[in-house]
Amino acid sequence: MGRRGKRRGDGMTPRALLEWVGAKGRAFVVAAPLAWLTLFFLLPFVVLAKISLSESAIARPPYLPIWEWAEGVLNVSLNFGNYLFLAEDPLYLMAYLGSLKIAAAATVITLLIGYPMAYVIARAPQHRRNILLMLVVLPFWTSFLLRVYAWIGILKGNGVINNVLMSMGVIDEPLVLLQTDFAVYLGIVYSYLPFMILPLYATLVKLDEALLEASADLGARPFVTFLNVTLPLSVPGIIAGSLLVFIPAVGEFVIPALLGGPDTLMIGSVLWNEFFSNRDWPVASAVAIVMLVVLVMPIAILQRTQSGKEEAN
């Protein structure tokens, strides 16, 4: 009884006050990150939407305000012209479709390469598993930009591939590999492969080996077991991995900029050029808003699979 008595005596702090401080501490833990993210992540989208409705101008910043307060009159001018412009010029539609096509195809290829890799890692003995996983993750930690750059040296006219093939006499003239859609696919698959392997590995490693043994015991050949047991159970990993590749690939800029050619139309590059070359901020904003609308569904699906996973844990 001495301890409690002493604490009450010297502190002179009523319990209510202590609780208030405790509650404040909790509130701070929530409020600090929330405030930061609201200001620097959520609010920017509001501004983005606003600018997409303003008119481009030669000024600093290069757009006109959407409302003006003059002589007691509030003038709001919402300019939907940027969106109409996107709809009228086929360039933009082609760029959106091109991005979706390239991202989707690259996602499928990544899945086809990533799945066997994830499977082998998940079935490897424990000590080797960590090493293999590290080998997958390591390139992801090192520079993305430099890894894309590495492909230039491999693909270009007098690059590694052409040099090897020509010295072996397979070809007489260098192949055109760089600045093609092929190079863009390669770049995306290469850069995003770890994003595919990790979620696939996470679901495959949790797969109870006894299920496979049970299936084999009941007479299924390994491939049948794979189709009936492994594949269905790894669907969450397939979905998560595919979306983690697809979503950023749609908005990709660096890969088409470095590896793509003049015919490679991707919306990330279009946005970049609107902003940096044409200095048309409102049109760039409209491009971004439309891209968000296109991506909102896949992002929502990804969020749901992730939060479902959290609840299952």
Binding site: F41, L48, G268, L302
Partner: peptide, 28 residues
């Protein structure tokens, strides 16, 4: 309160295309 908002705001940047993050932040 605001749990949904916080969890959304910390996961969305992971998949948001960089060009959108960059442009919107600049505008802000």
């Amino acid at each position: 309160p605001a749990r949904m908002m916080l969890s959304g705001a910390v996961t969305a940047p992971l998949v948001m295309p960089e060009v959108i993050i960059g442009l919107s932040l600049l505008l802000l």
